[in-house]
Write a protein that binds this DNA or RNA. Sequence first.
DNA 1: GACTTGACTAGAC
DNA 2: AGTCTAGCCAAGT
Length: 104
Amino acid sequence: MTFARAVWRCVRRIPRGRVATYGQIAALLGRPRAARAVGHAMHECPSDVPWHRVVNASGGISRRARMESMLTQRLLLLREGVTLRNGRVSLAHHRWRPVSRPSA
DNA sequence: GACTTGACTAGAC
DNA sequence: AGTCTAGCCAAGT
């Protein structure tokens, strides 16, 4: 099992209308310092992964090569009822809080 | 196995 | 609050 697969599995658990940060995903997988690697994994995620529900620690949409991807992410989030202010999600209100953790 | 590349972050200005 | 910097980690060369 590659780290990337573990990331995708975790992201698939994020419910509609909720978001998680790269660092949060990393922590859930037992690798609190691997936020950057999570981003790397998201770069090549399968279509069944709700990648748009992953934002950076500031609640914003991280920069990437194709700006189109950023716009799409904003659209998908709005469609799910996630409100953005100044291009940022209010993590206090929309952050996903899983009940159980996959690793320990 | 060393080196490079990012959809990252916390801390310092 | 915005910008910069130094660590961070997995993947692909």
